[in-house]
Structure formats: C-alpha cells, structure tokens
Design a protein around this nucleic acid. Structure first.
Length: 351
DNA sequence: AATCTCTTCAACCGCTGGGCT
DNA sequence: CAGCCCAGCGGTTGAAGAGAT
C-alpha cells in the first residue's frame, strides 16, 4: 500500500538503506532536489517525494549537527519553547544544524520529563499544582523547587543559600537569550540581592547604563534615570514574569513603560545613593516595601526595607542567611498587596 | 539466556497554507 | 472562486536497542 500522497506509486516504506541514502545524496548534490515529487523517479528510488524530502532534511543534509544536545542548546529550547510553544520548526531555527524533528524528539524524550520532575508544567512552564515528590517539599504552603531549570520562578533549596531565580528573558529582554535573574531573600525582612547574572553598571550623573550580558554573549543596555526603577507589579513577581514591567527602557525601541504606576523617589541609604538599587511593587495606590540595598563588599551587604506604613528596617546580612517564607506573607499582605487573594500560596500556584 | 518493559528517534500521517491554473 | 499540487509543519507511530527481571 502506497502513501496517501502517492497512492498511484509503488513505494517502499520504513527505514532507509545505505544504498537508498547514497542514491538520494548523489542526486541532490548533483541535481538539486527541485520538485520533491519528481526526486524519486530521477534518483531511481522506490520512495515517495515526501519521504525523500524528509530523509534529506532530517538526516542527509550536510549541514546537520550530529550528537547529543548541549546544555546551552537545551536551555535555548526551553527558553524559546516558553515563548513559542510547540512550534518546533521555529525553535529549531535557533539551533543551527538541528531539525524540528530532532528538537521535538529531544523535547518529548528528555526536557519534558525534566520539567515535570522539577514540578513544572512543560506546556506552560509554570509550577504544577499539588506537586509532591522527591524533588519538591512543602513548607509554609510554598513548594520549593530544585534549581537547575530556567523556569520563570524557581527556588533552590539544594544548597544552604536559597536562591529565587526568575528567567526574565521572554519578557524584559526579548532580544537576549537565557537571562536569569537570581536573588536571595533573607529573613526576617524581604531583601534583595544584587543580581548574579552578568550585569554591570556605569553611572554618569543622572543616568545609569546597565549592561546585561546574556549567556550567548548578546549584550543589551538598560538605561535608567535617577527616578526610574525596576518595577515589579504586585503579584506578577510571584505569578508570572509576563506581568513584570520595567519603568525604564531598553534600547532598540523596546518599551516597558506605561505601567500606570508613579515613580517612587529614591531614598539614599547612608548618603550612598550611587550604591542603591531599588525594587518597588505597587498596586493601585498601595505600595510594597521599598527595598533598597547598599552593597558594601563581597561578604556583607546592608539592606533597608521601607513599607507603606513608613516602617523601616535595616539589616546586614551575609551569605549564610536563610529564607523564611512566612515573611513573604507578613511583609506583603499588610502593604495592601494581593487584595484579591488570601495568601501568597494562592497567587503563586494559581497560574 | 530468554523475556518483558521502557526509551529513543526515524519515519509516517494528516493537515494547512501558498501558489498556480 | 474553485480545484489542484506542493512544501512545510506538528502529532503520532513503531522499529530497534537498552535495561530490567
């Protein structure tokens, strides 16, 4: 029985023999494929054109890359899949020498399982609900996840230092690959640590040029003024990076303005305003704690938290600090955040 | 050693959209 | 506009090999 596409022809199916490969290879390298439906006849093959095309594209093409997927390729697949979904051909375009079929197979056989094992929904890349296995544990209604994924929001508890990792690539920096934004929250106050992904700043009077270095050496400059800030709008911080806004701009016309949120004036810590980084979260006229940091040296940083009740806490910490999720509830909710929900838990997992 | 189960991935199937007549 | 052909795409299948029993 022939193929649906070529039922009139007597065609062979199944795996290709080396002789068939040789015939097809010789024909295409000397004649080109032209119209695929005519290739079998011209190449002397008992195959349909569709099969020839597939064999060439997926196996014989000289520019194909062989061997296992690298870690970088895997990260790229995950990142692009988060944006595009199962558009394998589009994803494969980001991986020179890889075919859509190869990417699809790799996703289904490896990446998908890894994500599920990490408690992530491979379709949405969000955290799965009610996940409970060896790789996760529940505490204070929050699910912890081992960090070796590029999920939007993961928490690493595999080391002494808990790290919240957010992948911002698809939202803040769509032209960069694999930007992961790590910070370490510290008890008893919500605090903010200098990002650990490649990030450098040049300060010049009223402007700060932040250079973001992606893992693929792609560089983007984020230019901020004195009054601008990283602006994580309310629950989006926990719920989805898709709602994160930056009240600033990246060059190449990438805009994340228009949040409708008023800028908050920077408050110098110890008069060292050029040492500050500020994260403000707002919802309507309500405001999360203003989190300011002063990075003193490699071992110890000073953090200052101001909530909308004008309560101010300063804290010095080092790398041995731990993270307490209870603080997240106590720090966020009194500030008027998450007014439509009862707990962080609901926000975090109802994605 | 034999059998069963699981995993991988090459290949197929069915569908869609574009181009041509 | 309708019908046909074709390339391309994503979902699915099944052969082959690896590992477990």
């Amino acid at each position: 029985m022939g193929h649906h596409c070529c039922s009139k022809q007597k065609v062979k199916r199944g795996l290709w023999s080396p002789e068939e490969d040789e015939k097809l290879m010789r024909h295409i390298t000397t004649q080109g494929h032209g119209c695929w439906s005519s290739v079998p006849k011209l190449a002397g093959l008992q195959r349909c054109g569709k099969s020839c095309r597939l064999r060439w594209i997926n196996y014989l093409r000289p520019d194909l890359r062989r061997g296992s997927f690298t870690e970088q390729e895997e990260r790229t697949i995950i990142d692009v899949h988060r944006i595009l979904g199962n558009r394998w051909a589009q994803i494969a375009k980001h991986l020179p020498g890889r075919t859509d079929n190869e990417v699809k197979n790799f996703w289904n056989s490896c990446i998908k399982k890894k994500l599920i094992a990490q408690g992530l929904d491979p379709n949405t890349h969000n955290l799965l609900k009610n996940k409970s296995n060896n790789s996760t544990k529940k505490s204070n209604n929050y699910t912890y996840h081992n960090q070796d994924s590029t999920s939007i929001f993961t928490i690493d508890t595999s080391t002494n230092k808990d790290i919240i990792s957010m992948d911002l690539k698809s939202t803040l920096f769509p032209y960069c690959d694999n930007i992961t934004y790590n910070y370490t929250p510290i008890v008893p106050n919500i605090e903010y640590q200098n990002p650990t992904f490649a990030w450098s700043e040049q300060r010049n009077h009223d402007t700060v040029t932040t250079t973001l270095q992606s893992q693929t050496s792609d560089q983007r400059n984020l230019v901020t003024t004195r009054d601008s800030m990283l602006d994580f709008t309310s629950c989006s911080l926990m719920e989805s990076a898709a709602n994160i806004n930056v009240s600033s701009y990246i060059n190449e016309n990438s805009m994340w303005n228009g949040t409708g949120l008023e800028p908050t004036t920077l408050n110098p810590i110890n008069g060292q305003e050029d040492q500050e980084m500020q994260v403000v979260q707002l919802q309507g006229d309500q405001q999360l704690p203003i989190i300011q940091t002063k990075f003193c040296d490699d071992q110890e940083d000073v953090y200052k938290v101001v909530n909308d009740h004008d309560q101010t806490v300063e804290k010095t910490f080092n790398d041995n600090s731990n993270f307490d999720f209870e603080f997240m509830d106590s720090a966020f909710v009194p500030c008027g955040l998450y007014t439509n929900v009862n707990s962080m838990d609901q926000l975090s997992w109802d994605c």
